[in-house]
Amino acid sequence: MLSAGAVNALIVELRSPDVTTSRADEIKSEIVDGHQGLIRHFIRLRDPQLYEDLVQIGTIGVLAAIDKFDIGRNVSFGTFAGELIKGELSHFYRDDGTIRISRSVQSHLGQIRTAQDSFVEQNNAQPSFSELENCVNLSRGEILNALQANYSTHFSSLSDPDLHIDVADSRNEFDFIDEWESVRPAIDLLTPLDRKILGMRFIEQKKQGQIANELNMNQMAVSRRLTAILEQLRHEVNTE
């Protein structure tokens, strides 16, 4: 990542009346290239299948920041660009129909989650599929559709409360596991919560229900996070 001073110098040069078009393009490319790490930081929780698209959207945020950045203000370009990258990504997720869950499916997911939580509270065990079917007023097809949406829609909103649970950084838990070597860079990009969930499931060998209980989450939320984490790790392996 470019230093704050280097970015400021480049922006001053870019805004100079003497700058040529080709030099202006070079400067913008240099700033964008210097902020790829920042873009990746903000898209790390999202779907690997959309990774390239999201990098492009993050780049739009950096370009907007180059246009709008006020060097006189006491804030670094990185901080300012981060806000615009987040804004562009949120805008994309709000507007892109491919990731929207219909209101009816959201309602079905809510019913399933509530029924599952009540069952666990009463029976101290996860319901089987047929027990869940008996607890909700939904057809088997509606339940399967809703679950499919839950697993495939693991785009975490930046304001998802599940992502702000206070957990200690579990980065070191993976240090002694040789098998994780190829995905270590992807693990390093995970949030502390996601690293924690990954470690609890595959190192401590805890079931999703136990993890949910310990982290005060719903099992379906843990499942959603694990799906996203594992897809991210596979993406890392496939792009090596």
Partner: peptide, 12 residues
């Protein structure tokens, strides 16, 4: 998996 009457976790 639903035919096998798995839990949601096992389905996943």
């Amino acid at each position: 998996g639903a035919k096998a009457d798995l839990t949601l976790e096992a389905l996943d």
